[in-house]
Amino acid sequence: MDTNPESESEPDLLKPQSTETSLNDLAHDLTSLLELAQRGSWRSILDKVTRARSLSLLSKPHDHLTYLSFYVFSLTKLRRFADAASELDSLQDLDSHRYLYESYPQFYPNRTGSLIPFSLRWLHALIPSKLGNRLEGLDRLYSLLDFVRQRIKSKNNVSFNVWRKREVFLVNCIIGQHLAAKEFVVCLDLFNELINRDDSLDPVLLSKLGYLQMQIGDFDGAKSSFSRIESMLKEGRIDSVSFSESELNNLVNRNRALVFLVGKDYVSAVREYDECIERDHEDVVAINNKAICLMYLRDLSDSIKVLENSLERVPTVALNETLVVNLCSMYELAYINHSDIKSTLSNWISLVAPDDFDATCTRI
């Protein structure tokens, strides 16, 4: 069973940074695209982009690139990686003069720099690994990391924080690639490179370092990483803009719970997860892991209720493959007629799930 301490997710790659103008001023009908993305309506986005292209509704270079970002992102969410790669290949050189603001003074007077959204650069780096070309994917991710670090050196204070968050995000992507290959030493080096810089302390990053340390058997190191986060929180050394108080407190509780879970103190772990859930009813990691702890305590009935209640209460948040896989595993342990129960669950999922949900996780 997957306890999924901290699930990986994409950042707000399709979310514009500017709030000075309306979204639709930034790109054609951008509000509608964002609403579809938030609902997971990836096929509708493909249809909308195709229609906009066929009717020549995109008039400026950045409109085309914004719509391409949504199109490729949607293809990626739908696991159509070859199609996504084909769309990205149409761009050719991302650093070409064709993608500079100064090449279109009639549209962007007095603006300089690249028109290419960061989301497209990230997708360009991600897709090769999705197609099984791990080394090419890593090479592109490291090249993009160099690109971001160059921007960090040259940007003003306003842009600095945005590019620093992108740096942390990319390092996490790269770490994920190395973790999959069990290249733990490389992962530790990447973590320490960021964490040892005073201005880069990130509680989520420190937590992930703790999870890695647990995987390689460094239990004391993991507890030290977790304790460092608690000290930062008490001393007010965490960016309150990036993290809410409830997010930080839940992170601390989940870290404590993980220490208890590894030590097989499931009662104490449940107590920590309960605090998280009371504070935030949408903390799916805490919900999922609480259910697993209850299962280990041989309370299979309550563990099933925890997951079922979360799906009923917050389906848009709780409906992910990890949670559904765990619930179906519990059904198989608890019920003789588990196939019928899973079939009912599968039918419900087909009505409410986003387009990219993997329905095979019910194992019917």
Score class of each variant (00 low, 15 high):
residue 265 D to Q: 12
residue 266 Y to V: 02
residue 236 G to D: 08
residue 258 L to Q: 12
residue 242 S to W: 10
residue 238 I to A: 01
residue 237 R to I: 00
residue 238 I to T: 03
residue 227 S to T: 12
residue 229 I to Y: 00
residue 228 R to D: 12
residue 241 V to A: 11
residue 248 L to V: 04
residue 234 K to Q: 14
residue 259 V to A: 08
residue 246 S to C: 09
residue 267 V to T: 15
residue 238 I to F: 04
residue 230 E to I: 13
residue 260 F to R: 05
residue 247 E to K: 08
residue 267 V to N: 12
residue 247 E to F: 07
residue 252 V to M: 09
residue 244 S to V: 09
residue 231 S to I: 15
residue 246 S to P: 04
residue 227 S to E: 15
residue 266 Y to A: 00
residue 259 V to L: 12
residue 269 A to T: 01
residue 236 G to K: 11
residue 228 R to F: 10
residue 264 K to H: 13
residue 263 G to I: 00
residue 242 S to A: 15
residue 256 R to G: 01
residue 227 S to H: 10
residue 254 R to S: 04
residue 266 Y to Q: 02
residue 257 A to F: 09
residue 234 K to E: 14
residue 261 L to F: 13
residue 264 K to L: 07
residue 263 G to T: 14
residue 232 M to A: 09
residue 236 G to W: 07
residue 238 I to P: 03
residue 257 A to G: 13
residue 263 G to S: 15
residue 259 V to G: 03
residue 246 S to L: 10
residue 268 S to M: 11
residue 228 R to M: 14
residue 233 L to A: 13
residue 247 E to L: 01
residue 260 F to T: 05
residue 242 S to H: 02
residue 254 R to G: 00
residue 229 I to A: 02
residue 238 I to H: 00
residue 245 E to T: 12
residue 229 I to T: 03
residue 235 E to H: 07
residue 235 E to F: 05
residue 250 N to E: 08
residue 233 L to D: 06
residue 250 N to F: 06
residue 241 V to K: 13
residue 262 V to M: 13
residue 258 L to Y: 09
residue 236 G to H: 06
residue 247 E to A: 07
residue 269 A to W: 01
residue 268 S to Y: 04
residue 261 L to T: 13
residue 261 L to R: 09
residue 243 F to M: 06
residue 257 A to L: 02
residue 266 Y to E: 03
residue 251 L to A: 04
residue 255 N to D: 11
residue 234 K to Y: 12
residue 247 E to P: 05
residue 230 E to S: 14
residue 249 N to W: 04
residue 241 V to Y: 13
residue 247 E to N: 04
residue 267 V to S: 14
residue 230 E to T: 10
residue 267 V to P: 01
residue 229 I to K: 02
residue 259 V to Q: 08
residue 249 N to K: 12
residue 230 E to C: 01
residue 239 D to S: 08
residue 261 L to M: 11
residue 263 G to M: 11
residue 260 F to L: 11
residue 241 V to R: 07
residue 238 I to C: 06
residue 254 R to E: 06
residue 254 R to T: 08
residue 241 V to T: 11
residue 266 Y to T: 00
residue 232 M to D: 09
residue 238 I to N: 00
residue 236 G to Y: 07
residue 242 S to R: 15
residue 253 N to F: 11
residue 265 D to M: 07
residue 258 L to C: 07
residue 246 S to M: 11
residue 243 F to P: 08
residue 238 I to K: 01
residue 265 D to C: 08
residue 260 F to M: 10
residue 248 L to K: 06
residue 238 I to E: 01
residue 246 S to V: 15
residue 237 R to T: 10
residue 256 R to P: 03
residue 242 S to D: 10
residue 253 N to K: 09
residue 244 S to K: 06
residue 255 N to F: 07
residue 242 S to Q: 14
residue 250 N to L: 07
residue 234 K to M: 13
residue 227 S to W: 05
residue 267 V to K: 13
residue 265 D to P: 00
residue 229 I to H: 00
residue 249 N to F: 09
residue 246 S to E: 15
